[in-house]
């Protein structure tokens, strides 16, 4: 069975392709710029905490480790879905519009394998995006602000190394919460040969879901929205850690991955590649 090493070769090729593209680096740089901007803005203004703005913004000045958290929570509603939408929306549609999809298929890469590899590459981008964002936050925070013991929401104080552990947990949470969205992007990408259309549709969907999530009249719908748990990582900053939202989030994301993965599979396996 040569399937395993071959999928590995194609995946390696896909990842190399993705992370060698200037577009990918530009998006990662933009994501890294968010916590840097936050930190610089706080440092320059250095006024008393106003209590408004993203979570923990007011605590940044007292402890640099909060920069990463504040940066992530700023990126979650728009910048992260924007970049993930670009990558996942482009995944199949981009190859189709370029014409390389037909050459991959007659190579023959196999349609299922192409789909799996494309989703894996989107997931890799989600991980990279969150990691870069968190790392940039930690670095700029350490550079501009004092680093010390961190006070959690529950009032408990933990050491800086333990706080980095919590940050890693938050990063994992945010990465997981993007998986369902990446599957939606992949599905949309199988519908069209116009990558920009697929990207825009994916991003619009993420914004629509967040708008719906903010309407109290639609409360029955909220637990089913893939954006509903996006900011639930706060529960990981309690002592002891409350895993409920992590579990709920993972479950919702898994449902979206299964449903939209199946839709993408059904669509892509039967579709005529005419570009």
């Amino acid at each position: 069975m040569p399937a395993r090493p071959i999928t590995g070769a194609l995946l390696a090729s896909e990842l190399a392709l993705q992370f060698r593209r200037r577009r990918t680096w530009a998006m990662l740089l933009a994501l890294a710029a968010v916590p840097v901007l936050v930190a610089v803005a706080v440092r320059v203004s250095s006024g008393p905490p106003s209590g408004r703005g993203p979570v923990f913004l007011d605590r940044v000045a007292s402890n640099g480790l909060f920069v990463a958290i504040a940066g992530l929570s700023l990126s979650i509603p728009l910048f992260l879905p924007l970049t993930v939408g670009v990558v996942s929306g482009d995944s199949i549609a981009g190859e189709a519009s370029q014409g390389t999809l037909r050459y991959l298929l007659i190579a023959p890469a196999g349609r299922v394998r192409v789909l799996l590899v494309k989703y894996a590459a989107s997931v890799a981008f989600c991980l990279a995006a969150v990691f870069v964002s968190a790392l940039a936050g930690v670095l700029i925070g350490a550079l501009l602000f004092p680093i010390g013991p961190v006070t959690l929401i529950s009032g408990t104080e933990i050491s800086p190394p333990a706080a980095l552990g919590r940050l890693a947990l938050v990063a994992a949470y945010v990465s997981v919460s993007l998986l369902g969205f990446a599957a939606i992007g992949l599905f949309i990408s199988t519908l069209t040969d116009v990558p920009v259309g697929a990207m825009a549709a994916a991003v619009v969907l993420s914004i629509t879901a967040q708008v719906l999530d903010s309407l109290p009249q639609l409360e029955w719908l909220h637990p089913w929205l893939f954006t509903h748990h996006w900011l639930g990582f706060i529960d990981l900053l309690r002592e002891p850690v409350s895993w409920d939202s992590f579990g709920d989030n993972a479950l919702v994301q898994a449902c979206y991955v299964v449903v939209f993965g199946a839709l993408a599979y059904g669509r892509f396996l039967t579709r005529d590649v005419l570009s």
Partner: peptide
């Protein structure tokens, strides 16, 4: 890249 997509032929 296209060669990597082909199951025939050793890496």
């Amino acid at each position: 890249r296209f060669d990597a997509a082909n199951p025939v032929g050793h890496p």
